[in-house]
């Protein structure tokens, strides 16, 4: 009777097989060629097959080998959500708002992911980092991004 003895590895193995399938699917139009004249699809396809093989071995191992179960893990969904969305928000707002307001919003927003955050500290830190990043990146390293973008017309004109 087969029983999953190591759930985490079982999921890991299945994931690897799915990744292999995904790359084979998206690369289905690439020419594979043969070993003499390898097409652009040869290397990725072979690797995807190899990854699926390894995934299968991981699954087999997860059915055979018992592991001592480590305690339940802490999941902090609020933190994951904020920390992963922060760069996305940064990317979407940067062109419109400019560096300073984007940085400010990013810091204030992401700081709430911590259970020890308090608003006064976050806002002060955000102000400090917004000023620092403008000085360092737009002034000293002359990155092509303005401190205030077109969405903030009046202050933006001053800089």
């Amino acid at each position: 009777m087969l029983k999953i003895r190591n759930g985490r590895d079982f999921v890991g193995g299945v994931t690897m097989i799915c990744v292999g399938l995904l790359f084979i699917w998206f690369g289905r139009e690439l020419q594979v060629g043969n070993s003499f004249q390898m097409g652009p699809g040869y290397f990725p396809t072979m690797l995807s097959l190899l990854l699926m093989l390894i995934g299968a071995l991981i699954i087999v191992q997860s059915l055979m080998v018992e592991t001592e179960e480590s305690g339940p893990e802490a999941w902090n969904w609020k933190a994951y959500f904020l920390v992963i969305l922060a760069p996305v928000g940064f990317g979407l707002l940067l062109a419109g708002l400019g560096l300073a307001p984007t940085m400010f919003l990013l810091i204030v927003g992401v700081a709430t992911a911590s259970r020890y955050a308090n608003w006064r500290h976050s806002i002060l830190l955000a102000l400090f980092l917004a000023v620092c990043s403008v000085v360092l990146f737009t002034k000293l390293l002359s990155l092509p991004v303005s401190a205030f973008g077109p969405w903030i017309p009046f202050i933006g004109d001053l800089f």
């Binding site: 760069p87 990013l106 992401v110 992911a113 911590s114 020890y116 976050s122 830190l125 980092l129 990155l143």
Partner: peptide, 14 residues
């Protein structure tokens, strides 16, 4: 750490 990690994220983004 609650002051450190927002700064790291900000720096990574830039």
């Amino acid at each position: 750490y609650h002051l450190l990690f927002p700064a790291i994220i900000g720096f990574c983004c830039i």
